[in-house]
Design a protein around this nucleic acid. Structure first.
Lengths: 168, 168
DNA sequence: TTGCCCCTGTTATAACATAACGAAGCAGTG
DNA sequence: CACTGCTTCGTTATGTTATAACAGGGGCAA
């Protein structure tokens, strides 16, 4: 690549995000994977966003520090982060959020972490729940019809507590 | 519109699909809505498909009987059918399945029907469950954090019983 | 040094979905 | 019937999300 190789890590995130990035970096290393610059940037941008953020919004942000970025750049990073459980895709929004579980968990990829997402249609904020009863119920229902569960997507749309207060 | 107005109902579906179409037609009439030719065709194609079917596949099928069909033609029909609870969108697949509940139910749109979908990643077939425990659990979990639930999406990816047998 | 694997760059295109506007059809009313 | 309002549909264009395919670079181990 021509030109002075800019250190992408010049992009700074808030302290708590930097902490999570460092933890993620160590987590990946333990898995034998590398949280490269691009992946780190994308994860940082997702963690810094108060709302789910789409691939093309990430691309725009990434471009200000990484001129060559193209859709595959972002999608490859997203695939990596998702495979490592560092982010989740919200299917109903085609957008991504940081996983609030991985960094509290010392298990590997197969720790069985499953989540439910509460999507507020007013403020757009997504809250991640980890409700075991829900997971158990759906797993039981599936097993009762002989279905082998590999991955479960649970997304709830509605109004969050904050927004409900403001309206009333 | 020029030319002889072709009766789109010339498209024939299997008997059981025709039955469901007739029921759907009556159901819509009770709601004060009309299951027009285009809507009927799209519903028929979805009901005839053993798997979820995407909007553009529907468009291709529709075109053989309806030359002018364009994406909005299909998406408008899909919106109508979805609003009336006659089909569901599988978010993970961006594809549509017929609802197996509506025709057994004599309530209106607000009957509170909620479903879980089991998606087999081998054969692609989707089975619809209606497990109350799962719905209760997720609703309870949401309410516990003050979230007002309006719509829940539950999609489970894995291996169906049939496919699990064949592999082993 | 060679070969391999992972990661990235690059171009192109596929796949999914909606905006906007006008006209045709259909139901109810006077 | 003519008028009106509403729903539905045709049409063109565009927006949004995601992937295919292939080439190059860089590290590491045999």
């Amino acid at each position: 690549m021509p030109g002075p190789s800019v250190q992408m890590n010049e992009m700074r995130f808030p302290g708590d995000v930097e902490d999570r990035l460092s933890l993620s970096e160590r987590y990946c290393a333990l898995q034998g994977s590398r949280l490269t610059d691009t992946r780190r940037q994308v994860l940082g941008m997702i963690l810094s966003s108060p709302r789910p953020i789409g691939a093309y919004d990430l691309l725009d942000l990434l471009r200000s520090h990484h001129r060559n970025a193209a859709p595959p750049t972002v999608y490859r990073a997203l695939e990596f982060l998702s495979d490592h459980g560092l982010i989740h895709k919200i299917e109903r929004l085609s957008a991504f959020v940081g996983c609030s579980h991985r960094l509290r968990c010392h298990h590997g990829k197969a720790c069985g972490h499953r989540a439910q997402f509460l999507i507020c249609r007013t403020c757009g904020i997504v809250k991640e729940l980890e409700n075991d009863e829900t997971e158990s119920a759906v797993n039981l229902a599936a097993r009762n019809v002989g279905f082998h569960v590999e991955h479960t997507t649970i997304e709830v749309e509605g109004i969050c507590a904050q927004c409900a207060e403001h309206v009333s």
